[in-house]
Design a protein around this nucleic acid. Sequence first.
DNA 1: TTGTACGCGTTATCAG
DNA 2: CTGATAACGCGTACAA
Lengths: 335, 335
Amino acid sequence: MKESGSPTLEQVAALAGVSRATVSRVVNRSPKVLPDTVAAVERAIGQLGYVPNRAARALVTRRTDSVALVVPEPDSRVFSDPFFAGMLRGVSRTLAPTSSQLVLLIEPAEGDDQRLLRYLRGGHVDGAIIISHHWRDNVLQELAQLPLPIVFSARPLGVDVPVASVDVDNVAGARTAVEYLLSLGRRKIGTIAGPLDMTAGLDRLTGYKEVVSEAGLTEAVAYGDFTADGGEAAAQQLFDQHPDLDGLFVASDLMATAALRVLSQRGRRVPQDVAVVGFDDSVMATTTTPKLTTIRQPLEKLGARLAEIVLAKIGGAELTSPEIYDTELIIRDSA
Amino acid sequence: MKESGSPTLEQVAALAGVSRATVSRVVNRSPKVLPDTVAAVERAIGQLGYVPNRAARALVTRRTDSVALVVPEPDSRVFSDPFFAGMLRGVSRTLAPTSSQLVLLIEPAEGDDQRLLRYLRGGHVDGAIIISHHWRDNVLQELAQLPLPIVFSARPLGVDVPVASVDVDNVAGARTAVEYLLSLGRRKIGTIAGPLDMTAGLDRLTGYKEVVSEAGLTEAVAYGDFTADGGEAAAQQLFDQHPDLDGLFVASDLMATAALRVLSQRGRRVPQDVAVVGFDDSVMATTTTPKLTTIRQPLEKLGARLAEIVLAKIGGAELTSPEIYDTELIIRDSA
DNA sequence: TTGTACGCGTTATCAG
DNA sequence: CTGATAACGCGTACAA
């Protein structure tokens, strides 16, 4: 008469007057069970409030019904990043209808890579989504080579094996931004780039350079680190060196807000004197004065694809190439 | 000679020349094992790269070594909320050194409560942290009564059983904000409150009302919904009805940025004409012009406590009362 | 201190 | 279509 804990398959079987095996079949929707039997079992299940024991199931099936969302960077910015939030939403929406759970794996401190790798190797999850922005010695490479379905949230820098990844076309996005400034008649266009150890930093700078060069203009580049302070320093430096800029493409909205402040301090009007375009279309883009014209990324869709891809790979699909999505120019008041 | 998959206790035992039980003891740090034996076993473990099988372990110990982070609201705003990000960081930092994993549980669509409850009841996690802001019919109450260690991220509205919770003193925080405006010589102070189905909305309004009433001033309240648009509408309405306000306390930074824009449109200077204080100290507080004076919440600490509390409860501690933390006034340029 | 043996709840393989 | 029964990998009384 042990009825502590949740009811087991055994108890359901007893109540329904069938064997454990049959109950298992019903639970797993095996097609070859008589409708009457199914009904009886389901009644018993409902009556007892039976829920399959995940551990027991995992033990035998060798599947855990869970996928990891890995953030292999102690960098706390990742979380405050609207990028992460948007992705997360897409991922969780897609995973929800599935039986799969989302396990959050974060590198708590610099250099604790091994912890993550060991966990992933330990068969605790069926697959993993890696959200990594920075180049990280060889951690990314090790992750990419794990014997586990894996997908990256961006083309991982420094990984030389083919991997599945989902990303936005950063080069094209930057091109759109700069071309738009061009279409506005701006001819002295500068950029505040992100760090070059991140695809987002690298590719957006490339896009800028391409367009500027194609238009026969001269480059004006300063580097920020995707933070407000870094953006501010970069903006100061850029306008010290190039006081006559009339167009500015900033590689992230956060840095763009800093640039806006710097311009205001220097008495330069936006967009009249300097037209500014950001990147991300995060909340901040609408909380500044003037509101930011920016490049939007379909974050939720990216997240959804990320989830779909791991799921597919877990299901046996072979996917080892990047998927690239388009960005969209959102015109507001700053350009 | 089956060596597919990860190595098992059995294999480690064979290699180390001991029994499975002994290896198990070493793995679980049992004190009564000879140092020599320990060394031999550890060598074998290292050699094979053995990692305990979580499922097998969970099956027998009836512990899953994982705690759920539950967001029982389909409200997508939760993720973009810096509040969530900060908390998450604290939680994950605290959980990291533990063997516990963080499982993210999100209500994908309105009314899918049962899914969450079933999962939590299914013994899939050892405990749960509930991040809920809104009053939700009786879901919160059901969550609170689950036979599982649980802690809420804020005093859950409409729950009439004692529960463990961690929160900031919203009333005191709002009081600080309004008293600061008072100290600046402002006497016509209005507020943009949050929705009253959220503790944050309710308590911050209470704090405002207390101070205004104690100072013998008259109230001027408009309600927003913690979004930029809602904040804008509320600000418009507030200044339509009370054009002479010289002080404004806004229940969230996001809404405050909207208020700033409205004031700028109306040609009222901040802080000269109207001093504005926000709440949260989110990134946006520093991306506006002028930068926002606001009330900071120790988010990471709150998250850490949340994690510590579930862990303690899982360990058998009886904790069913709220913990309240102080806020801090961050003075910038808007007041 | 170490080894033996059993049970945890499921799925899967065979018979029937 | 259904029922025994053997794994799955591990922890732990109990025995040695």
